[in-house]
């Protein structure tokens, strides 16, 4: 099944899955963030293999450049770089592994039944800016404008949430420490 695959695809897939596993299992949140950035790089390499060059660049800029830097800033702002997470009992791990494993099993089994339903019809230059821009600004122009509104709402929400209230309203009862 895997013997006749090209070597770059195999190496990239192996690295992707390995670093994704490290994101989940690492105790140190900073290591998790760095492993997730590496996962995004390998996924961008997959995009290049798939002839989606513009998407590869956008994935790097948006995910690895913007979102992950936001995560790193919040991690360092909250000073969570040390291992502060209490250890969960083993039963949680077993239950989570069974749930995720059964999802994997069901999807792969369902795909084994349906088989190949996609016709191969590769078109040259589909992932370049010219082709994507034409589609985005003709057929998808209304969703494109709506995402602008979504971004504005998200920005206003983030600013409002991040603002410190004057009367220091406490949402949760102060159990230990409280806010200073």
């Amino acid at each position: 099944m895997f013997q006749n695959l090209p070597i770059p695809f195999l190496i990239l897939s192996f690295l992707t899955i390995l670093s994704a596993l490290y994101v989940v299992t690492s105790k140190n949140p900073v290591h998790s963030v760095l492993a997730l950035i590496f996962t995004f790089f390998t996924i961008s390499a997959h995009y290049v293999l798939l002839n989606a060059q513009f998407l590869a660049v956008v994935n790097l800029i948006v995910y690895a450049g913007a979102i992950m830097v936001l995560f790193l800033f919040v991690l360092m702002l909250l000073n969570l770089s040390k291992e502060t997470e209490p250890v969960k009992s083993n039963w949680w791990g077993i239950a989570a592994a069974i749930s995720a494993g059964s999802l994997l099993l069901i999807i792969t089994a369902a795909f084994q039944v349906t088989g190949e339903a996609v016709a191969k019809n590769p078109v040259e230059g589909i992932g370049l800016v010219k082709a994507l821009g034409k589609v985005l600004f003709t057929r998808f122009v209304v969703p494109f404008e709506l995402t602008g509104i979504l971004f504005l709402a998200a920005m206003v929400g983030a600013v409002l949430l991040g603002k410190r209230e004057k009367n220091n309203a406490v949402l949760l009862p102060k159990e230990e420490g409280g806010n200073s």
Binding site: V23, V24, T84, E85, W92, A95, A96, A100
Partner: peptide, 14 residues
């Protein structure tokens, strides 16, 4: 599935 396992298993919100 790895992502789902992480959501179910980890407790740290970030």
């Amino acid at each position: 599935s790895i992502g789902l396992f992480g959501v179910l298993f980890r407790r740290n919100a970030i």
